[in-house]
Design a protein around this nucleic acid. Sequence first.
RNA 1: GUCCGAGUGGCGGAAUGGCAGACGCACUAGACUUAAAAUCUGGCGAACAUAGUUCGUACGGGUUCGAAUCCCGUCUCGGAUACCA
Length: 861
Amino acid sequence: MTTPSTYDFAVIEPKWQDYWKQNKTFKAIDCDTTREKLYVLDMFPYPSGAGLHVGHPEGYTATDIWCRFKRMNGYNVLHAMGWDAFGLPAEQYAVRTGTHPAVTTAKNIQIFKRQLEAFGFSFDWDREINTTDPNYYKWTQWIFAQLYKKGLAYESNEPVNWCPELGTVLANEEVINGRSEVGNYPVIRKPIRQWVLKITEYAQELLDGIDDLDWPEGTKEMQKNWIGRSTGAEVDFKVANTDETIRVYTTRPDTLFGATYMVLAPEHPLVAKITTSDRADAVQKYIEVTHTKSDLDRTETKDKTGEFTGAYAINPVNNTKIPIWISDYVLISYGTGAIMAVPAHDTRDFEFAKKFKLPIICIMTPDPKACEAAGVNIDEVLAGNACWPEDGILMNSSNEEVSLNGLHVEDSKKAITEWLEKKGIGTPTVNFKLRDWLFSRQRYWGEPFPLIHMEDGTVKLVDESELPVILPELENYKPTDDGEPPLARATEWLNVVDPETGMKGIRETNTMPQWAGSCWYYLRYIDPHNNEKGWDSEKEKYWMPVDLYVGGAEHAVLHLLYSRFWHKVLYDLGYVTHPEPWKRLIHQGMILGLSYKDQRGALVPNDLVQEKDGKYFHKETGEELAQLPAKMSKSLKNVVNPDDIIKKYGADAFRLYEMFMGPLREVKPWQTEGVEGVFRFLNKVWRMIVNTETGELVAEISDDPITKDQERLLHQTIKKLTEDIETLDFNTAISQLMIFVNEFSKLQKRNRKAIETFVLLLSPIAPHIAEELWQRLGNENTLAYEPWPKFDEEKLKLDQVEVLVQVNGKPKARIQVPAEADKDQLIEIAKQNPSIMPLIDGKTIVKEIAVPGRLVNIVVK
RNA sequence: GUCCGAGUGGCGGAAUGGCAGACGCACUAGACUUAAAAUCUGGCGAACAUAGUUCGUACGGGUUCGAAUCCCGUCUCGGAUACCA
C-alpha cells in the first residue's frame, strides 16, 4: 500500500476499516468485570431496496462518536448492528416478480452493510443479527409462546379493512374515503380472525414506568396520552318500561343532573332490543351506513350524525326520562360503549344537542374570570346557549338524599360517586384509551406463529424443542381467493399430526407483524449465537439495561411501547433483570433536503429549477422560486445519496458535516456546500501535521515547551470536547476543534504532545484521519483505546481578564483587571476608568452591580 | 381542534439572565500565480450625519440594574394525534 502525502481519504479510509476488521478492534467483551460496561443502541434499519439515505448515518454517527469517546474513557462498550428485515416491500416485490423475499432481503442487507461499513462505524460486527434468520425468529416465536402461556394472547374477530376486489386486508392509511388507495375499489369493515396481545393488562405498569425514564419529555407525554388513563364512574340507567339497564362510563359524574339524553354506539348490543318499531327502519339504516365507514372516516367528519331509538332511559339522580339515541361519535371499544350526554358541559354533546334540538340544561356557574379568558359569555352558558366544560360551582343538582349545589367539580365528583355506590347504581372506574394489540397479519413475509389448530377445536402451542417453525417456500405470495393468508397455500407445511395423540391439526396461517422482531432485538445483541436460549442470563445481567438508545421520533409510541410491554412480561417471568429496557433515549432530528416553491406555494422538483445570481427560477415558466427545506423525496428530486458524498469527500467529512450542521436533536436542512467546508478543515488538519510534498511530518512539529497561551487553548479544547461529546453537542465540539487548528496552523513551533492530544480529541468524530495521523506521529497501536486527554482547570486560568463596564445597562468601556478581582475591587477600578468617570460625575449612584470576570453595571440618576 | 417543538445575519447555527451573531457556508477585497484552482490575510446584521451613533434575536406587553434567554398574550412554521365521554 502506498502512503499518500496529501490527504487521500480514498486510501486512508479503507486502510483503517480493514485494520479494525482484521484486529476485531471493537469487539465487546462479555462479562468483563474489570471495566464498566456501556450498552449503546441504535434503532436498526429496515434494509430497503433504495439503500441508505442521509438520515440513517445521523444517529449512527452520534452513537459511534459516543462509543469511541467512552472506550477511550475506559468503558467496555457494546455497540452492534442488525436488520429489521421482515416487512411488506420485499413481499410486494415478490408478488410482482416472483422473487423470494429472502433473496431480495439478502441482497438489500448486503448493500446496507457495505454502505454502513464505509462510514467506519465501530460496531462489533460479530454480533450482527437479522430478524428473518430462523435462528433469530426461533426466539421471537419463543417469546410469543411465553406470552401465550401467560394468557396474554387470544383469538378475536376484529373488524379490519377488507377489499374484496384486491382480496386483501388494507392498513388504515391505505384506505381513502372508503375506497382502496390502489385501484379505487370499495373497502368494507369485515371481522377476521386475529391474534391479539393483551397489552392492556400492562397499561398501568407501562404508565407508571414512564416517570423514571430519562427520555425526551415530549415522548413521555405522548406515551402517557396514548395509554390515556382516565378516572370516573360507571353509572346504571334503567330503560323506561323495560327490565333493561344501560351502564355508561363518565369522567364527569358531577354533571349527572345535567344529563338530558343518552347515546349508544351503533354496535351496542342493546340497540336492537330497545329500539321501538316506528324507529326500527331509520336505526337499521344508520347502522348500515356506519358499517361502511372506516374508523378514520367516522372520526374525520366532525359533523354529528345519529338516530333516535324511540326508547327512554331514567336518570337515576332525578328520575327524569331522557331519550336514547345512537351515534357513531360514541365508540363501542371504549368504556361501556354508552354515554350520558351533558350538552351544557361537554363540547361533543353540545354539538349533537344543537344539531338535533335536544335540551341543554346548565348546572354549573363558571368562574367569570376563566370564562372571560376562554372568550365565552357567561350569560350564554347559564342560558344553555354555550358550552362550559371547565370547572365551576354546581347548582340545580340535588335530590332528597344528596346535594352538589355550591360545590366545585372535584368535590362534587366525590360526593355523587359515594352516593351512587351506596345506592348500588354506580362504581368508581378507571379506563384506558390503550387497546389490545392486533398482532397478526395476513401476509407471507413475517414470523409464523408457533400454533396449531387441532381437529377438536383446541389450539396447541408448538413444543419448544420444535422451534423454529420455519416459513415454508411458496410459489405464489398472494392471499388465497377466499381471503386466507398466503401461508394457506403451503399445503404440506399446513397439515400436521400430533406425534403423541395422532390428532390432526392445521398450522396458524397468519404471521406476526413487523413490530415483533424489533420488540426484543436489543436482547439478542447480548448473546447473538446462543442456540440454547434467546440470551444468557449472566450476560443479560452484565449488559442490561441499554444506557443510551438513539432513534427517530416517529417510533415514539408504537415500537417503544410494544417493546416495553414485552420487556415487562419477560421481567415478570424472570428472564430479564430490569423492568425497563432503555434508560436514556434521544431522538435525532430529521435531515431535510432543499426544495423550491413557486408563488402559489407549490413545490417544484429540483430538476426544474435553475440558479441565476443567487436567485432561483423555474426552467419552464421562468417564474422566480423561493428556496426552502422540505422532506427528501423521490418526486422532489432532492434526495442526497451518502455514497456520492463519501466518494467525493470521504466518510470522515460526511460524519463531521452531519454532526456540525446543527444540534443532533433538531431538524436540519442538508446543504452540500457545508460538506466542502468541513472537508477543507480536514485538509487543514492534515497540513498542520503532514508535509504534503514529502509525506513526512511537517518541520514545525517540535519538542520545545509549549507557551502558556497555547497550553490554555489546548486545555480549553480538551474541556470543550470532553463536555460536549458527553452531552452529544457535537456541533459546538467541532467548532472548538476548528479554533484549535486555526491557531496551531499559524505556529512555527507546534508542540508534539499538543498535536498528539488534538489527534486524540478529533478521533471519535473523524476516526480514519485520526488513526492515520496517530500512526504517522510514530504510534504503533490503534488510538481506539488510548486514554482520553484530561484537562487541568489551573491551566485554563488567565491572569488578566477583560470586564465590560456598563452605565445604566449600556456598554461604555472594557477594562483589563486581575482575574481574581472581587466585586468591590471591580467597582472601584471601573469608577476610576477615564471613559467612565465623566459619565457618573455629579450624578447620584443608585446601584452598583458587579459580576466577577464578566461585567460591572453602574446605575446613575 | 388538542398536545409537543421551534422562530436569531443572505444560509446552517453560537450564546439559556451579563459585550448578540462563536464556528462554518456564501459573498467580497487583497497577497501568491503568466493565469486559474488551492492556500494565506482582511471585510461581511441594518440605518444614518460613518474614527462614531442609533436600532436590531417573529409580534405586543411584563419582570429585572440588565432579557434572544424568565412570565403573559398574539402570529407563523414543523411534528404527533384524532370525537376515548
